[in-house]
Design a protein around this nucleic acid. Structure first.
Lengths: 143, 143
DNA sequence: GAAACAAGTGGGAAATAGTGGGAAAAAGTG
DNA sequence: CACTTTTTCCCACTATTTCCCACTTGTTTC
């Protein structure tokens, strides 16, 4: 299970080191994808295969489903950690998330999230400000 | 499984190099055809046979089915990669997709898609603008 | 407090991917 | 059959990526 929050930075060659705590599960391969809220999601190979299969089962004939599957599958990139535990993010994913220098890597149960540092700080602030409201909304969806 | 997004270009001789990640599965032959949304779809030989069979099972009496089958079957062209991993796209397919110079090649599970660069960027922009909406709709179709 | 270690970072060298172009082969045309 | 055009094969160049090694900082250990 991935939990925690880490501040790392991307070097000039585009490499991002994954926190040691997370490496064991990702060493055999991982997939980085476009996430919601303009951050990146990182899954283990196994978790990703479940998701990909679901996506591929969406009806190809329905435009919305086709488009979503296309965006998610095309947005994904499978990669490996180098010997120093780093991954190389493709340009289009960095663009999508607005990543260039400092990033925050968070563990969210079965995935990692990669945020630009400032976006993450904004998100946290907003969360803290509205936490009561959000909690109440959660009750409605059965938490 | 094909995933990812790659920016390549077509040279003066009409050759398009396929991303290395995709070559292994296509080395023994592939089929390029007209896809939906005015892009090109590329299948492995094996996948294509499944698709073609499905298409041939469509009711010949329904106009839409007939049209769709024509689009894909008549548009199809089987080809090989050259030693540098490139394919040669026939003129009518380039015309159909509006391809001339820069293209984007995406992996979408069991097929590749070939897009003109600008059309792909437009698609992404439009999708990202609606992604929250789409994500919620997907819940409805059981994702 | 010094040594030992671990985690994140940086950079040089080798390998690889994408691209371009000439020459040989094949196909189409009169 | 001769000629032109297109396709295929091969080799070369360049930018990027990958691999490997080393440095730095902060923490632990004796």
């Amino acid at each position: 299970m991935f939990i925690g929050e880490y501040k790392h930075s991307i070097d000039e060659k585009g490499r991002l080191s994954i926190p040691v705590r997370f490496r064991d599960d990702l060493i055999s391969g991982c997939v980085v994808t476009r996430g919601l809220d303009h951050c990146l999601w990182v899954y283990t190979q196994k978790e990703w295969e479940k998701i990909a299969e679901k996506l591929s089962d969406l009806p190809i004939t329905q435009k919305d489903a086709r488009s979503f599957a296309r965006l998610m599958l095309a947005g994904a990139m499978d990669t490996k950690l180098d010997k120093a535990g780093r991954v190389n993010l493709p340009g289009y994913l960095k663009e999508y998330a607005g990543i260039n220098g400092k990033v925050v890597i968070t563990g969210v149960y079965n995935r990692l999230e990669i945020w630009p540092e400032d976006a993450w700080e904004d998100f946290k602030k907003q969360m803290e400000a509205n936490s009561d409201q959000i909690a109440e909304n959660l009750a409605e969806i059965g938490f």
